[in-house]
Write a protein that binds this DNA or RNA. Structure first.
Lengths: 226, 226, 226, 226
DNA sequence: AGGTAACCGAGACGGTACGTCGTGTCTTTAT
DNA sequence: ATAAAGACACGACGTACCGTCTCGGTTACCT
């Protein structure tokens, strides 16, 4: 949540005095995770976290100003900052993999953490800024760089507005994730990826990806004109 | 928020005794709206609402069980149940209009109400169910029926999975709306609509809509094969 | 603790809204008394009082701003505001009785309450003012009016500074009560009363009282000159 | 506050390791004094003392177990252990001087320290014992030895209970000091002294002292019988 | 015209969680 | 060994809001 500068300064200053207990920090994060999973954000009170972690409330407040900050860190510390996906193959193949991996993450127990953070972020601007910075942006940056490599490789035309593509890729996943009107799974992520690619990727690339025509469901050997 | 049955029963029971004060109801809804707009959801406590409305807390509780129920009703009572859009022209033109209109709504002061409701809905299943029922579903139903008319008109192939299309249409809007990583406006709604249509609508329909090729930005006179 | 004016106003205003629970008030005062007696002022926390009384902390705070205010009221409500003493006989006999009665009170379980209030009063001016007003002053007023009746009766010369006499009467009792360097009992109260009277009362009055000469211990048949 | 044994042991142990910082000790005592005078006992927390003294809390705890112990030492270290008074002249003249001097002390800025100690002593038996030992007793011992010399000199009859006299001398001063219902000053101390002496001292001694009859205010050339 | 039943405002009540403060202990580096 | 810095567990503080409750009073329908 803090700037990196602050973190470094803290590390420097921390040489004097009793050092921060890493054990406490871990126990707090675990306790927060457990409470959230088992009993929801409502039950995840600072009191309860401290009690379960066997620490004092003050220790919690010393290191996190917001409840959401704890959840954010709990999420990020476990989900290594980058969601893993195969980078082998073409950039677009990697991208498809990222999308599926992302959907899988949203479905995981850590997804529930994210849900809470987003909800909190709507209410509190600072929290919102924090997770956009530490969660949303890295994901988009990953995807954007893949798209740019695809542009370089001629698989996507240079004139395409990549931001719109990114929204088209992520948006429907977040939509189902937050509104919960329909099931979110890797299959949906793939379907969405393909339908986006159908409009954006070159025919060659689509063939290589095996992208189906959203209408016919046929593999894109399809001759549109004919 | 409640079932219709309850409402009817209430109407029946309400025949005897002092009738509910419509004035109070309106003042409560207004107070909730004002507090939310001016000072955020955090400040929109039942206490504060009752105080500002000049009613007692009990009067609030008598008619709404959840804080979010008030907000939902405040939103729905002002926004006429259906967001208006031109229905003249082809179904897809109407759909484009709906999308832009929808984006405009999300940007409006009532959008902020929706934001709060969604946030609350993430934390509370009952609230979630309520706004999916009273807000999300009607919107999707509207759009779906337009899509089906387009299918009948041969503008979209029958085999297309309309649910995926609906998610592709709404998802990116909700995404920007909730995550707030980028500006949401009617222009974006239109861009997204076009990029979805590019993959889904028949060439003829695209031409009629004046849908640009997402890549070239050229109007879709575009010769795919060439 | 408050002015009488406020109390009357409150009684008037209290007509609207749910009336204060007298039961809670009594349970709080009892709880405070019990805690103080059993475990001392240190353990008499607002938390503990509320818990033992089966009320909420807020209810405590609603009616008493200071911890000492509770103790003061607990003390005053039980010890009827005036310490009883025989008023029969001469004013000075009554005064002697008052002194003994006062010492007996200081030794009682309510004396312990007073001790706490005084201690608190040293730290907090408002508390100090409260118990001077509601406890110290009434006692002195009682004693003063007796002394004045004695003056009228010619048992004390009119030129005597009654305030100094009052301090001489009460001072040593408070001294032992607060400093606890020696045992405080009615016998000491009587001894002190007599030694004060020896200097102040007329020979006749001393005889009537049976006041001993502080030196010889003989009854005051004693001929000073001889 | 501690026994002398401990002090000696400490002196012995102190031969090894870094010696105790006398500077820290003084700064702590000063800080305590300042806080108490400037912002009251409530603000005189161990935290605040350590901060103002520029020491760590541990250093404070190492040398004083109670907060009141600091105050006691602060008081005693400044007020030379014995309150000075003229010893020239007769024992009773010295005693009168001691009383006035004592009142002057209670009025001084160190008096405020004593007030806090006494208040604390009411709540905490150990503190009470400490100041009785180190403050109250020495004062009383001083006064008692003067009284005994007066007895030897025939100025007070041997049968008089000196403890009662001591309480009559000190009691009213402490009374005004702690209850603060009236102004405490050397004049009051003198008035009280005289009224006590009137009952206790021989006529000759009273004449020498110039003790006024409490009633008439006349110097004690006064003929009682007449 | 009264009865009656549900309404309304005010505000006290028992709870739960909040975030802060002070206490006394512990753990580090430095002297 | 002592010192400064400061983290730590503990527990009380006083406040905020929750949802419920009891008051005195107010409609407006229904005998």
């Amino acid at each position: 949540v803090d700037d990196d500068t602050t973190a470094e300064q803290a590390a420097e200053l921390r040489s004097v005095g009793r050092p921060r207990s890493e054990a406490s920090r871990q126990r707090i994060l675990s306790a927060a995770r457990e409470l959230l999973e088992q009993r929801g954000l409502r039950a995840m009170t600072i009191c309860a976290i401290a009690e379960r972690a066997g620490t004092s409330k003050v220790t919690v407040y010393r290191w996190w100003s917001h409840k959401a900050a704890i959840v954010l860190e709990a999420m990020l510390s476990e989900v290594s900052p980058r969601i893993p996906y195969r980078r082998s193959g073409s950039p677009l193949e990697s991208l498809r993999d990222q999308m599926k991996s992302f959907a899988r993450f949203l479905m995981s127990r850590n997804g529930r953490l994210l849900q809470s953070v987003v909800a909190e972020g709507v209410l509190d601007a600072e929290v919102g800024h924090a997770y956009r910075q530490h969660w949303v942006k890295p994901r988009r940056d990953d995807a954007r760089s893949l798209l740019m490599r695809a542009v370089e490789a001629g698989e996507i035309e240079a004139s395409v507005d990549l931001e719109v593509v990114l929204d088209a890729l992520f948006g429907p996943l977040y939509y189902r994730f937050l509104i919960q009107h329909a099931r979110l799974d890797p299959a949906f992520a793939e379907a969405n990826f393909e339908s986006v690619m159908y409009g954006v990727a070159s025919e060659q690339a689509r063939k290589r990806l095996g992208v189906r025509d959203p209408a016919s469901g046929r593999r894109v050997v399809r001759k549109r004109k004919a």
